Amino acid sequence: MKQEIAYITSLIGDPVRTKILWTLLDGRAYTATELAICADTSPQNISMHLGKLIQANLLVAEPQGRHKYYRFSRPEVAYAIEAIGNLIPDEKHRKIVGNTNNAAIKHCRTCYDHLAGEVGVSITAELIQQKFIEPEGKTYLVTEKGSAFFSEFDIDTDELKKSRRIFAKPCLDWTERKPHLAGALGAAFLEKMLLSDYFRKTKDSRAIVITAKGQQQLYDRFKIST
């Protein structure tokens, strides 16, 4: 076990591979050329790093036309990378989140395929407060009241539970250092909010824009002012 952990930490500890993994946290799939630009390295070097990450089953490559697109092999990889951000010492953490350049990311962003940041954490806290979900160990349970709430977004929680993916779990938010909702339920909830035009993704960033409609919904449903 110790050898396996050492192998994984040595892989993700490399500066280039860290940049690759951090870039993929926005939930998109990238070509090798795009990742080389994000990691500020050469196409030849990026191929070597991608090969190692694929061999370790942290990434997968999906051919599409003339290109291959790289993404996380499973959601748990994204959760682990996000969680590492919580190991940043408090003083450095305060400087990072206090930097005005990070304001949009801190406020509302994607964490792979679910919602994070101040807004994601606030929504999760309200879901618990209003007894739509309940913490149970390392997971969340959806109450009968919660099933009715999520059905308003056309989310069938019973169907989601049949997925091989973890249904609902807390993911420790690296900027807020409090949990936000992850798992199949968190992904489905963000997807419906995007389809309803409450949220919009931004180009080349994990930041999420909250529309006027979304601001109204957040206040009406959760008394959250953005």
Results as ranks from 00 to 15, higher is better:
212 A>C: 08
24 L>K: 05
222 F>T: 00
128 I>R: 02
37 I>Q: 09
144 E>D: 15
170 P>F: 00
180 H>C: 14
71 R>W: 03
147 S>L: 02
45 N>K: 03
100 T>A: 10
25 L>N: 14
118 E>K: 03
186 G>R: 03
95 K>Y: 09
174 W>R: 12
118 E>M: 04
137 G>L: 11
165 R>G: 12
66 R>H: 14
184 A>C: 04
97 V>C: 04
67 H>V: 03
53 L>N: 00
22 W>Y: 13
189 F>Y: 02
100 T>H: 11
49 H>P: 07
43 P>R: 08
84 I>W: 13
212 A>G: 02
86 N>A: 15
137 G>K: 04
5 I>A: 12
23 T>R: 15
188 A>Y: 06
133 I>S: 09
92 K>W: 12
115 L>D: 04
23 T>K: 15
13 G>H: 09
161 K>L: 03
135 P>E: 00
119 V>S: 08
48 M>P: 00
144 E>Q: 13
152 E>H: 10
27 G>N: 03
130 Q>M: 13
72 F>K: 07
140 Y>V: 10
167 F>K: 11
48 M>H: 08
134 E>T: 12
213 K>S: 15
152 E>V: 07
221 R>P: 02
8 I>H: 06
158 D>A: 13
21 L>R: 00
159 E>S: 14
150 F>T: 05
99 N>A: 10
38 C>V: 05
46 I>T: 07
192 K>A: 05
28 R>N: 15
44 Q>D: 13
90 D>L: 13
90 D>R: 13
175 T>Y: 10
149 F>K: 08
59 L>G: 06
9 T>H: 08
225 S>C: 01
177 R>E: 02
36 A>Q: 03
2 K>D: 14
12 I>G: 06
196 S>A: 14
7 Y>G: 00
2 K>Q: 14
63 P>L: 06
14 D>L: 03
215 Q>I: 11
105 I>D: 12
177 R>V: 03
11 L>M: 01
1 M>V: 04
12 I>R: 06
15 P>F: 09
87 L>E: 11
203 K>Y: 07
38 C>Y: 02
67 H>M: 12
117 G>H: 08
39 A>E: 00
183 G>H: 00
107 H>D: 09
51 G>V: 07
127 L>V: 00
73 S>E: 10
163 S>M: 01
52 K>R: 13
66 R>F: 12
192 K>S: 01
205 S>C: 01
59 L>F: 04
24 L>Q: 02
56 A>T: 03
138 K>M: 06
182 A>M: 10
137 G>F: 12
59 L>W: 04
61 A>F: 00
203 K>E: 12
44 Q>P: 05
186 G>S: 05
221 R>Q: 15
112 Y>S: 07
103 A>G: 02
